[in-house]
């Protein structure tokens, strides 16, 4: 049973982060739901940040001619890796929420443009992590429009699990199927494609790792600029293995479709799911390795448990020649 809540034009101080999934069908429903949400915000003197696909941006701009409290941002500037999105949203919301002003975000992911099953899976995980990332942000809330026109109930159900509220008919309901626990139910990683190459590493092997990755990535068609980024990312993850993951690890590389993958496994455990998803401060001593990997790679998959250790997959686009 779900509990229906009235619209809340102004949020009570100390209210938890509200993260609503808004399944809609067609442009009219998209517009009515998002515009209601925006107008509620404006009436309460809240700022609004909108990051939706280009066609939806045009629709909303047409309805909100010169509304200075509403900022449109290009979500694609954060890049394809969902691991970068929390930091991007955090920056956008902070910029608009100066002085403690409440901010509402509207973020629609272009789900049908997901590049792979792995990408789709990480996009969903990102939506779930938003609840944790912004849990303490009592002045922020977010609406996630979702085009449900294709009647894909499985996709809708998967996404519903990542949102604590569902937005319907101008109201939101608490979502019974939301995954409230500490542990997220990850999709299993696909088995590596054949042929793959494998290398065990320990202290003193960073150069050898970079050399192996560079050779395999070049063979797979990874471009020069991405090779340089991948070298840094691989160095960071292997360093984590050596320093925090039992002192050694295993590197595996392979190419799949138009993607080159590096998988690094070790016996360490990353207890904080937010590691690497927030922008580091200049005075911060460590904690930049995973952050750099997320910022430099086209996709990063992380699976870490105390029992099975950590597996990190770095994806790089490799246009087929």
């Amino acid at each position: 049973m779900t509990e229906t809540m009235p619209p809340t034009p102004s949020r009570p101080h100390g209210a938890p982060f509200r993260h609503e999934l808004y399944p809609y069908r067609g442009q009219d429903q998209f517009l009515s739901g998002t515009l209601d949400y925006i107008h509620e915000a404006l009436e309460a003197d809240e700022a609004v940040v909108v990051a939706v696909p280009e066609d939806k941006t045009s629709l909303l701009r047409g309805e909100l001619a010169d509304e200075s409290a509403v900022t449109f941002v290009d979500a694609t500037t954060a890049g394809p890796n969902p691991g970068r999105h929390i930091a991007a949203w955090s920056a956008w919301m902070h910029q608009r929420g100066e002085g403690g002003r409440p901010v509402r975000g509207i973020g629609e992911t272009a789900w049908r443009q997901a590049r792979s099953a792995a990408h789709l899976s990480e996009l969903r995980y990102h939506e779930w992590l938003m609840n944790r990332a912004f849990a303490r942000s009592s002045t922020w809330s977010m609406l996630c429009p979702y085009d449900a026109a294709d009647e894909d109930q499985d996709a809708l159900r998967s996404l519903s699990r990542c949102h604590p509220q569902i937005h319907r008919d101008g109201q939101y309901t608490l979502n019974e199927v939301y995954l409230t626990g500490e542990e997220y139910a990850f999709d299993d990683l696909d088995a590596p494609c054949d042929p793959f190459q494998e290398l065990s590493y320990t202290h003193g092997d960073l150069g050898a790792i970079r050399s192996k990755v560079s050779q395999c990535a070049t063979d797979a068609g990874v471009t020069e600029d991405r090779l340089a980024k991948l070298a840094v990312a691989v160095t960071e993850i292997a360093t984590n293995s050596i320093r925090h993951g039992g002192g050694h690890g295993t590197l595996r590389t392979w190419a799949q479709d138009e993607t080159f993958l590096c998988e690094l496994r070790d016996s360490g455990y990353i207890p904080d799911a937010m590691t690497g998803r927030t922008r580091p401060e200049a005075n911060q001593v460590g904690g930049r390795g995973l952050w750099l990997a997320h910022q430099l790679c086209d996709l990063v998959e992380i699976r870490s448990t105390p029992d099975q250790g950590t597996t990190i997959r770095l994806h790089m686009d490799a246009p087929q020649r």
């Binding site: 600029d225 340089a228 070298a231 580091p280 401060e281 911060q284 930049r288 750099l292 910022q295 430099l296």
Partner: peptide, 19 residues
């Protein structure tokens, strides 16, 4: 510094006046 070094420096949060 090359492009990747400058990018990493910026990403790492060191491109600020107090560094």
């Amino acid at each position: 510094a090359n492009e990747i070094v400058r990018l990493c420096w910026d990403l790492a949060g060191y491109a600020t006046a107090d560094v």
